[in-house]
Design a protein around this nucleic acid. Structure first.
Lengths: 143, 143
DNA sequence: CGCTTTCTTGACGTTAACGTAAGCGTAAGT
DNA sequence: ACTTACGCTTACGTTAACGTCAAGAAAGCG
């Protein structure tokens, strides 16, 4: 039985809010390599126990943000940009406005993507229609 | 005045349906390098006048298809697959069915993309809302 | 003829986000 | 003590779709 219910697995050495690299990797379905890359890219700064990385709750939150960032199509560099913005002045209206601008950029990019995607689907429909037509002709002839 | 109105520019040596590499590059807004790559990838097979590439009307049509393919998110390899399918048996129902399958794959991929994109936009909205809230709080405090 | 442009073929460089492996240390379990 | 399991760093490999030279050929022009 777990006396120290840290997360799912008790690291036994430490208490709550502490994750090993593979803890987080499993939870977010990424590889340890990815986490190290994020660190190298300046997106995470886990503490160390000797050589071993120890991720805090804050790191975990950041990781979640990284993944969300990626999902909305940000590169790691862009995510870092957002982090830096937020870090430099967590409560300064100028920075928040910059953040809003960035978000707007992203949204525009996504909406462009969306419209192109719609075009693509239309393209596919069209090609499909032609193919179906050809197919019908063939089956009429064969019949 | 142009006696041989081939395209926009008369190559003077040849008649209609003949384009140099930069003719097509300009028309479709791609670089010559890209056209050579498409050739190397087996997507185009322009004739030669000595060393120089001469693109026919058919090549031009293909290029248009390549670009459409890329727009719907196909890799060059996938475009080639489609071309090969079509070429090998332009009127065989089996091949056309394969084509339809491929198109369906593409459509599913695109629809997945679309739903993820919707999620992303939702994400952005949410982040934006929070930022706006923070901003309001700040301005209240400052006021 | 010399100059300029447009073409050619290599062939290496680029970017992003990791993958993969080597070689080694450490820690836990049996 | 031995064996796994996990972690570390370093560093090269991968993929796609080109970009970017370099070096040279052919062709039109004055």
């Amino acid at each position: 039985m777990n006396t120290t219910s840290c997360e799912v697995k008790p690291s036994a050495t430490e208490r709550c809010g502490c994750y090993t690299i593979s803890d987080l990797a499993k939870e977010f379905e990424v590889t340890p390599r990815a986490l190290r890359l994020y660190e190298e890219s300046g997106l995470l700064e886990p503490q160390r126990d000797g050589q071993k990385r120890i991720y805090s709750e804050r790191d975990r939150v950041r990781l979640r943000l990284i993944i969300r960032g990626k999902r909305i199509g940000c590169s790691l560099a862009e995510v870092k940009e957002l982090f830096d913005m937020y870090d430099s002045s967590p409560g300064e209206s100028g920075q928040i406005k910059r953040l809003l601008e960035k978000l707007d950029e992203r949204r525009q990019a996504l909406e462009l993507q969306r419209s192109e995607l719609a075009l693509s689907l239309a393209d596919i429909e069209q090609i499909e229609q032609r193919a179906l037509e050809t197919l019908r002709e063939l089956e009429n002839k064969g019949h």
